[in-house]
Amino acid sequence: MKILVPVKRVVDYNVRVRVRADGSGIETGNVKMSMNPFDEIALEEAVRLKEKGIATEVLAVSIGVPQTRDTLRTALAMGADRALLVALPQDAEQDLEPLCVARILAKIADSEKVDLVIAGKQAIDNDMNATGQMLAAALGWGQGTYASAVDVAEGSVQVTREVDGGLQTLRLKIPAVITTDLRLNQPRYVALPAIMKAKKKTIEDIPLETLGIDITPRLEILKTVEPPTRQAGVKVHSVDELLSKLKTEAGVL
């Protein structure tokens, strides 16, 4: 079984994100970038399936500026067998929209004869939460989103989903698309010897134009703003004062 894992290069989750002065987006110059944490979980799941002898090949795919190679290098060090980069020009400022990403991935899943796609449920930069679903639609495959457990059987995969109010279990026919939630697994730390070994693997390039996909944006970002700063709280001296403030100022009673 061949598994495709899309990985995205995003602003590291530890970075304090700043909005660009002109409001056109967030500052990415001189900012530490890392693999989207949900994609790490997806890759970990795929690598574990390979280690269990269920998967035969794990293919990491990324779409992005040339520096995205670093992210793919990490994917190789974590255990991906191959890495494909759909390179965008260095000045590609804006993210590709989920629909374009899904169409690109669908092409690759098709040409690579992939059996399973395991993707992060969303990227932590723009939180779209759409690519996995659109990819399933584009391929005409079943989808199991927000997975907190994945069990592969002969010809099918059982996915436990985290939904409001509990867990839902689905059985999907393979091929299928799975998107990962936070509690699916704890991704491994990359071992130092694996970093050295990954250096020797090649990252295959797929020129965007060979895929014949229109990446013209359909959405227009009007404005990006910082979240409002939290107002300082007040101390109340009695229950009566609290009640009166809740009634008069907060208007919640």
């Binding site: 890392s34 670093d70 290098r73 060090a77 730390y189 990359v190 130092l192 970093i195 250096k199």
Partner: peptide, 14 residues
């Protein structure tokens, strides 16, 4: 270099 940065990142997260 890229490799040293990666070693730093993995060590730091651990």
């Amino acid at each position: 270099n890229e490799t040293q940065e990666e070693v730093r990142a993995t060590t730091r997260s651990f």
